[in-house]
Each structure stands twice: as C-alpha cells, then as structure tokens.
Design a binder for these strands. Sequence first.
DNA 1: CGTACTTTTGAATCGCATCAAATCTGGTGG
DNA 2: CCACCAGATTTGATGCGATTCAAAAGTACG
Lengths: 210, 210
Amino acid sequence: MKHNIDELGWPSLIDVQPAAGLIPISLRKQAERLDALAHETLFRTGDPVRYVYLVISGEARLVRLARNGSEAILQRSRGGFIAEASLDSRSYHCDAITTEPTTILLVPAATFRAALEEDPMFRRAWQSQLAKEVRKLRAQCERLSLNKAADRINHYIESEGVNGVLTLYQSRMSWAAELGLTHESLYRTLRRMQDDGVLDVDGARLVTKS
Amino acid sequence: MKHNIDELGWPSLIDVQPAAGLIPISLRKQAERLDALAHETLFRTGDPVRYVYLVISGEARLVRLARNGSEAILQRSRGGFIAEASLDSRSYHCDAITTEPTTILLVPAATFRAALEEDPMFRRAWQSQLAKEVRKLRAQCERLSLNKAADRINHYIESEGVNGVLTLYQSRMSWAAELGLTHESLYRTLRRMQDDGVLDVDGARLVTKS
DNA sequence: CGTACTTTTGAATCGCATCAAATCTGGTGG
DNA sequence: CCACCAGATTTGATGCGATTCAAAAGTACG
C-alpha cells in the first residue's frame, strides 16, 4: 500500500533516516511511502526505472539469480538508497526484494533527476553517495578475493565494524551469502576462531581479539 | 615528466580517448599530462587528493596490499578515470600504480569540482560515469562469489565481452588476479574448457561455445 | 502444537592453492 | 647476432579448505 508521505505522523524523516535528510523538501512532497511485507518484490530485471527507492526501515536487497538457481546478493540496504546506479538506466538489470517488513520512500525518477539539476546541495550529496557506494563495493571485491573464510570474516569486521567491533544486523545465513560462503562454512569458522581465541562472539556482537 | 596538454601535438583528446571528450575545454587547459613508465606509483594510501587521474593510454591500477603480502586489484583502468570515487575524499585509501608505460591526464581536483558545479553536461556525464562504475563493481562481486574457476571465466566473458566474444587486454597472470584465482588455476581451467569444447582460445581472443 | 527457518555438527568429496620446476617469450647488452 | 635475464606460460604432485549432502537440535511465530 502506498501513502503520500504527508500522511506520515512520523517524526521528521531526518530523524528516522539520515539519507532522507538529503532529499529536498520539494522532492519529499512528491514522494510516496510504501509499506512492504517480507519477501516482496520491488522490481524485476527489465522493469523500467520509475522510482528512486529509499529504504526508511527494514531491509531491501538487489539480487540476481544464477543459471544454477543460486542467488547472488548485489546490494543490501538497511536505511539508504537501493539501486542508486539505475537512475541513469532505462530499466533494471537485477531484482529487488525485501527480506523483512520494510518501509520505503518512492521518489519518481523524473522528479529526482530534475531536483539533481536544480539543487546544488542535493547534487553534491548524491555524488558523494555514489562515491561511497563505489568504495563499499571495492571493499566487498577485496574481501571476496580472500580465499580463507577467516580472512573474509576479519576483513568484514574491520571494514564494516568500528575498531574491530561489529554488530551484525542480519542472520548468519544471509551473512554467509554476503561473504560468498556456505552457512556451514561460516558457522564452523566462527567456532574455530572462537576456540583459537581470535574472535569473541556474543550474539550479534563480534569482536576481533588479535 | 609533466607537460601542459597544449604541447600535445596529439589529435584531439576526443579521438584518443572518449572519456576525455566529457571534460570541458576550460578544464583541459588546466590539465597536465604525465608520461609514466611501467610500475610507477601515481599515489599512495594516505596521500592527499590533488588530481583527478584520467588514463589516456596504457594502464593504471588501484591496489591494496594485504597483511600477508598478497595484492588485491581494486580497479584496473585502460582509458578512463581511475579512483573516481576519491574526488570527494581528502586522501586516498589505496595505492595507484602503472603496469606499463602510461599516459595520464592530471586535472587539479579543485578545478574539477568547480567544473562539476558549473557545467550541467559534464555533471551528468560524471554521474553516469560513477553509476557505470557501480554496476561494473557489482558484476565483479557477483563474479567473485562464484566458486568454480570456469564459472568465473564464463561470467567474465559474458559481462566484459560482446556476445560471448572477449578480447583480453592483459596478461593471463593479471587476469587470474582479477578473477581471484591463481595463474596456475586459470591456465589449467582454460585448457580444460578448450578440451571440453566449451571455449575457444586464440591468443587474446576468447569465445564461449556453449 | 506444528511449521518454517536457523543454527549446529558430521562425513565425504572436489577444486583450488601451494610448491616445484621446466619451457617459452621478449627485451637488453655484449 | 647471440647470450642472458626477467617474466609469462605450462605441467605435475600434494594438501588443505570449502562445498556438498545429510541430519539433528534449537528458535520464532501463528
């Protein structure tokens, strides 16, 4: 179900989601709100690009299905844009799904492009956002080119956590997929790292100790 | 050695390198040309961002050295920008090197940023460039999360080649590193794929036959 | 309470990394 | 021109580590 965001009754978007603060007021007025359940499809490969999607709460993912049926996670967004790089494409080249109940802000793509032309602050923020995504993806590539599970885990904690401490906002199964590992492999490696005393695991809190 | 690009005696940059055509004339006048040998360092981790680097000919790479001494290739540019995403950073978080004699256009970062503010065409081209880089990196991540060498090779040919045909512009050793494989593994897999009749290898020309 | 999913452990297998070494290649200097 | 060298290419043998298949136990939720 879509709502006009003026119906919100939320605190200001800025409080809820920093990225939303970057969107000019004029743009927010034209945005709609979408409350999606878990495992809903936002768009599919080949769909025309109609909206810019901003995840307010919950989680959305870009996925692509390989021939053998395995699923690659191309992006995982919890608060922030999803499929930013499609803004200058006609259509999508992957699918977007939710993994849990998720609230999304839909900004019409044409309106969004116009705002980029007119609002210098917004434009800088957008460029900065794209650059940040590039750096994040480079880190991900670097991580995936490590071929030991423990190395990938450490790399993830170093680059996504703060000072060797990481709070995980996803199940280990999903994390395993993001790390390019099977879940069995991840579980076993986490266990071994604990036994070896190089990692401290307390629920979703992971601390490197080396 | 750096030259003012007016000393060029080149054909127009547009003919040499399409990406350069996106740079406004005013900006080109302030750019310098750098002729680097193979294995030169353009900048190191921590260096302040002074220039935007545009590779005119040859090859530049972003690399990061892991603790164990192995080297991860974060970007490989043959004609086009390198480290685009650093434009909004103070300093670099990886190293840039050349792998062969390379000619580079150095545009002062401040000048570049000013041009982005003032020239709408240029700005759109830049955003499009960043978006393209994002898509390319997503493809790279998807590829690295395949765990069979043959799958990565096929994926590379599909996404970097045209209609299942790819011309390789680097040694197989470098390609192996980009694919996240050892060179031995790559050689053996290429051989096996040929023997199995799913791939045709003729020097730098690779054709999938399945 | 039952169902779906996650977490966990086990055993067997396969593929890649690793180490080693030979051959081939292009470029340099004598 | 040839000897030489550095790097790329190629083949071989071995071991490790991740995948795979299987299954049990734990957990959240209606």
